[in-house]
């Protein structure tokens, strides 16, 4: 049981570091992009404009955040 618990912790910690790590803003941005894609699935024109804009703005915000931390 102890080994299973340890393995679960290691597994969870790997995915946490991989998905969230030191850039939680990018994880949240990806989730928001998925939600917006699902909401706009019937409005294709709006979706193909909004989705790339969201990704570009998220990345820019994260880079600026990284620059300000230095």
């Amino acid at each position: 049981m102890n080994n299973i618990g340890r393995a679960a912790r290691v597994f969870g910690s790997f995915w946490w570091d991989f998905l969230v790590g030191d850039t939680p803003e990018l994880f949240i941005a990806a989730l928001l992009i998925i939600v917006v894609a699902l909401l706009l699935r019937h409005d294709h024109v709006l979706a193909v404009i909004v989705l790339p804009v969201m990704a570009v703005l998220s990345l820019m915000a994260s880079v600026l955040h990284g620059r300000n931390k230095r």
């Binding site: 790590g21 990018l26 998925i34 894609a37 990704a55 994260s62 880079v63 620059r67 230095r70």
Partner: peptide, 27 residues
């Protein structure tokens, strides 16, 4: 595709962020 797309977005944006900061001389 939605799940994997989300995974690739997180991975891609974090690679890009790090590489941009390095190329920009901040890392």
């Amino acid at each position: 595709r939605v799940v994997i797309g989300g995974l690739l977005l997180v991975l891609g944006m974090s690679w890009l962020r790090k590489a941009v900061l390095r190329a920009g001389g901040l890392k």
